[in-house]
């Protein structure tokens, strides 16, 4: 059964009762919330997630509720709780959906050491993976959103799950989080793209989550091998430039971008080295989305 098979009342009853149990990527999540905006968010953006029954194993028990107490009426806030542990300070209630998405990212990154988790978007075409790591402002999410509308399938806009067991990257396709100008850019690029409600004024700016239809995402159980590693650098008004990146530097950058490298230690080092060994690595500077897509096309179609 999928979340879309639940009617709105059943969905809300689960969320405000024992928890809505669903799968995202390899993870079982139970979510409890009394906040209507999150219910809408789930209904709109997670329709193809499998709803789990009561005896399925749950990895993350999550609660995202308004902060109780006196302050609540003056300044309504939301707090994310991972089974009683609250990793973040409360956020304004209007940012509830962002709190849920960030919180779930946090859970995955701090618990799931069966993967080396690299801060990177990952997409796939014809069985070959493209990794786009990048710091905020590099444009990785924008690029990733555009690629899912250009024949690539999404694994994640945020984290590459590199399996400790087989060295393959596994999908955890969730809504793509877009910020500020990127939202307009993608709406102009793909008229068919659907979005959740806008979350204004977060620490990262305005956010909208883009829905990723089932056919644009890689099936959760399928691992892929990455072939291309591209570090995107957005720079307005520049010339497009594709520069080969040495494997030594690529290793260092990936390690810097790995959330749990320090946990996996030596094993993580071997995994990064093996990964880099099989990757074509590039630094990529681009001035706008169209040039970025052309550049990616050029990189990924070149014969080695």
């Amino acid at each position: 059964m999928l979340i879309s098979d639940l009617d709105r009342n059943a969905l809300k009853a689960h969320l405000s009762g024992q928890g809505l149990r669903f799968r995202t990527g390899p993870f079982g999540v139970s979510l409890r919330t009394s906040i209507p905006a999150i219910a809408c968010h789930i209904e709109k953006l997670y329709p193809h997630s499998e709803a789990l029954d009561n005896d399925a194993f749950i990895d993350f028990h999550i609660t995202t509720n308004p902060v109780s107490g006196l302050r609540r009426r003056l300044k309504p806030q939301v707090v994310f709780s991972f089974d009683g542990y609250k990793p973040f300070k409360p956020l304004p209630l209007a940012q509830a959906t962002a709190a849920f998405e960030w919180g779930l990212n946090w859970c995955i990154a701090s618990i799931s050491h069966q993967y080396l988790i690299i801060h990177s978007a990952v997409v796939e075409k014809d069985g070959l993976g493209l990794m786009l790591p990048g710091s905020p402002g590099s444009g990785k999410s924008t690029l990733c959103a555009a690629l899912t509308h250009s024949g690539w399938r999404l694994l994640s806009d945020e984290m590459a799950l590199l399996s400790v067991t087989d060295g393959m990257i596994y999908p955890v396709p969730r809504p793509v989080s877009l910020k500020n100008q990127s939202i307009q850019i993608i709406k102009a690029f793909a008229a068919e793209a659907q979005f959740g409600d806008r979350v204004a004024g977060t620490t990262k700016g305005d956010i909208e989550h883009m829905y990723v239809p089932e056919e644009n995402a890689l099936q959760a159980s399928m691992g892929i091998h990455a072939k291309y590693l591209v570090f995107p650098h957005y720079q307005s008004g520049c010339e497009t430039e594709v520069a080969p990146l040495s494997k030594g530097r690529a290793s260092m950058s990936l390690i810097e971008n790995a959330f749990n490298f320090n946990i996996l230690g030596h094993q993580g080092f071997e995994m990064i080295s093996d990964l880099v060994g099989s990757l074509e690595c590039h630094d990529f500077t681009y001035p706008d989305l169209q040039q970025a897509l052309d550049g990616i096309e050029q990189i990924t179609s070149a014969k080695p």
């Binding site: 194993f57 618990i111 799931s112 320090n262 230690g265």
Partner: peptide, 21 residues
């Protein structure tokens, strides 16, 4: 069973890294 076992294995990883640090 695999799913719960994974959480324990991960927890062992964390302890090992902590001791190293």
């Amino acid at each position: 069973p695999t799913q719960p076992r994974q959480h324990y294995v991960n927890a062992l990883c964390i302890a090992k890294a902590n001791a190293r640090a």
